[in-house]
Nucleic acid binder design. Structure first.
Length: 662
RNA sequence: GCCGGUGUGGCGCAGUGGUAGCGCAACUGAUUUGUAAUCAGUAGGUCGUGGGUUCAACCCCCACCGCCGGCUCCA
């Protein structure tokens, strides 16, 4: 009998009987592995366990507790979902159902254009558990296009995918079908077959640690021109433990939600009288924001920026010339019409204003790089369904700056800019970054190819030199220039796009910007747009969620609260508050009108970094009792002057009581 | 903009046809308290808005608005 020889991930060789499958290989390695195996990777391709192996292949067995393993079981769970829905809604059409981060979804079209409600989820889930209990096999089959069209004739979306692949198709379509020359399908039983590349788990009994999460509408093929399908999202994991850990993490994320914390900590609100996406900052949120802005200004000044101010409205002429009205009119508030039909727009961008400042005087190379900074409030008419807390608003303030420099200065300028960006973000307590480079879009782009290439390679070099992971986003740049964006991971591992650094070939051209070079020639400058916070509102939201509301001392609206044990200690408490205020610390006094425990509880709920309790011993010894946030163990008898120095130092170095221990 | 859900005092919630209740917060009084809730009392809501059905609507129907979850979009 002939044999097949395969190589394992550790480099070792195994010989198997001819016709052996990955499952046989797993069994040869160990019974435990055979039991765990879900699929296999053969020469880098993910395949079913029952696919026969060929000699010379490199094979690794995919088990549930791995990224690929979870992907396989999520995808298979999506098939079970589709089967359950077709059982409960005979005649339902199903479209696509991929694995996604943490789970899967499947898109359906219900008979009579029906839709799911949240109440349907438990029924569907119960049906899915039945299918899993039935222990159905996943069986792969391959068909010609003609057979495929026949097989799926009652499933119009599947037919559309097959036809698209037949006609050349996109990568996405090929992904569904499997190859560009045939149609791959998986059936669980005679009544359920789905178009699919696979692979899948061998049998439905391998699934089960899942939960359906929500229903949602989703456009077919992601285009709003297409009909809207009914999507069901679910999450699926390799074990009950992993599932509950994930659900637990979702709970945590809800507890950190800046909209909830913003209300609880009395930072800001969205009065419905103002309209969606328009926030007001209450005194506490205003304090946090002011501290953020003041610090930002201070850093920008030190980095050589100059401060400019521009109005919130402008005649249409400006945005006609900049081109914004051509491309983004939908995203702008409609114009105000004044006498003689003159149109004024609320500004959605600051850049054309800064461009006008550049143009206000003849410029010399000696003035470059010219860096103009503004906290510029802009207004964008975001579509009604997209506004979200402080992260997607209709009125926001960008920490916007535009740098005008020579082509020769571009590299150095970008290098120092990126360092500046990262340094500022770190000062706010974000430490885990990666960079994304968005390059020239294939279709439309202004500027010469050489300009793009130079700009992109400069950005890439600067990014690489920063020593951070660089993710390419090919074709993701705006049509007027490439950009680098800084992505930050927060305390629970979510990523947020923070700063963007964008080159612009368009505006200098449209506004005919020029400076007089050393050669006495008039030369077009390079323009760099950049925002570090992005918007102050959004950055606040990210910080609130990152810290779960436990803002570091320097950003906290209230830094110290002083409580006398009895009200005959209030006088000493007041003295402490005054001493703290004299050193610039935001402190307040809570009079002893209710028991200490209650007052401590209130202060804790407000997430104030330091609660000072003072009683008889403290009055006589000029000391304080320090209850630091995050500690269960109050410190007694701390010298008042020592404590004040400690808080002052903590504010100066942007620390937090949690970082010291107690 | 599209799909689905939802809307009750400042906040969190109960109330599925007979003109609204709880907790917290607020206010008043008492209490003087050493590290996460002192006690008592008072006040506060045309139940998102506008129509409709009904003898009667927080409750059923329609429209609009806001909010939530997605989709699309995000200069």
């Amino acid at each position: 009998m002939s044999e097949v020889a395969v190589t394992l991930p550790d480099g070792s060789q195994r010989n198997l009987d001819a016709g052996a499958t990955s499952l046989d290989l797993a069994a040869a390695i160990g019974s435990r592995l055979a039991k765990d195996a879900l699929a296999a990777t053969v020469n880098g391709e993910l395949v079913d366990l029952d696919r026969p192996l060929e000699s010379g292949a490199t094979v690794s067995i995919v088990t549930p507790a791995s990224d690929t393993g979870r992907e396989v079981l999520r995808h298979s769970t999506a098939h079970v979902l589709a089967q359950a829905v077709t059982r409960l809604w005979p005649g339902a059409h199903f479209a696509i159902g991929p694995a996604i981060a943490d789970g899967f979804y499947y898109d359906f079209e219900l008979p009579g254009n029906g839709s799911f409600s949240d109440d349907d989820l438990p029924r569907i889930e119960a049906e899915m558990r039945k299918i899993i209990a039935e222990d159905q096999p996943f069986t792969r089959s391959e068909h010609s296009f003609a057979e495929g069209l026949e097989l799926f004739k009652s499933q119009p979306y599947k037919v559309e995918i097959i036809k698209a692949v037949q006609a050349g198709g996109s990568d996405e379509d090929h992904h569904e079908v499997g190859t560009s020359t045939s149609v791959s399908a998986y059936s669980n039983n005679p009544n359920f077959v789905d178009l699919c590349r696979g692979p899948h788990v061998p049998r439905t009994s391998r699934l089960g640690h899942f939960k359906l999460m929500r229903v949602a509408g989703a456009y077919w093929r992601g285009s709003e021109k297409n009909p809207m399908l009914q999507r069901i999202y679910g999450t699926a994991w390799e074990s009950e433990k992993a599932l509950s850990a994930h659900l637990e993490q979702l709970e945590q994320a809800i507890a950190r939600d800046h909209r909830k914390l913003g209300r609880e900590l009395d930072l800001f609100s969205f009065p419905s009288e103002l309209g969606p996406g328009l926030a007001v900052f209450h005194p506490k949120g205003g304090t946090m924001r002011r501290v953020m802005e003041e610090y930002s200004r201070q850093r920008h000044e030190a980095a050589g920026y100059e401060f400019v101010y521009t109005p919130h409205i402008t005649k249409s002429e400006l945005f006609e010339r900049s081109g914004h009205l051509d491309w983004y009119a939908d995203g702008m508030y409609p114009p105000m019409e004044l006498d003689e039909g003159q149109k004024y727009y609320l500004k959605p961008m600051n850049c054309p204003f800064h461009v006008l400042i550049f143009k206000a005087n003849p410029r010399s190379f000696r003035e470059l790089p010219l860096r103009m900074f503004e906290f510029g409030s802009v207004y964008r008419y975001e579509k009604s369904g997209v506004v979200h807390g402080l992260t997607r608003v209709r009125g926001m303030t960008q920490d916007d700056a535009h740098i005008f420099c020579t082509r020769e200065q571009m590299g150095d300028e970008l290098t120092s800019l990126l360092n500046f960006v990262l340094s500022l973000l770190r000062d706010f307590g974000l430490n885990d970054f990666y960079l994304e480079l968005s390059t020239r879009p294939a279709e439309k782009a202004v500027g010469s190819l050489e300009e793009w290439e130079e700009a992109e390679s400069t950005l890439a070099r600067v990014a690489t030199e920063a020593g951070l992971q660089l993710v390419m986003d090919p074709g993701g740049g705006a049509f007027y220039g490439p950009k680098i964006s800084v992505q930050a991971r927060d305390a629970i591992g979510r990523t947020h796009q923070m700063s963007t650094i964008q080159l612009d070939f368009q505006l200098p051209q449209r506004f005919e910007l020029e400076y007089v070079a050393t050669s006495n020639d008039r030369t077009r400058p390079i323009m760099i747009h950049r925002a570090l916070f992005g918007s102050v509102e959004r950055f606040m939201a990210v910080l609130i969620e990152h810290y779960a509301g436990n803002l570091p001392t320097w950003l906290n609206p209230e830094q110290v609260r002083v409580l006398g044990v009895r009200n005959d200690h209030d006088e000493y408490a007041f003295e402490i508050v005054s001493a703290l205020k004299a050193r610039g610390i935001r402190a307040s006094l809570d009079f002893a009108n209710e028991p200490l425990g209650g007052r401590i509880r209130n202060a804790k709920q407000e997430k104030i970094p330091y609660i000072l309790v003072v009683g008889d011993e403290d009055v006589s010894g000029r000391t304080v009792g320090v209850n630091a946030r995050g500690s269960n163990d109050p410190e007694r008898g701390i010298n008042l002057a020592t404590f004040i120095e400690r808080v002052v130092a903590e504010v100066a170095n942007h620390g937090s009581p949690e970082l010291h221990g107690a």
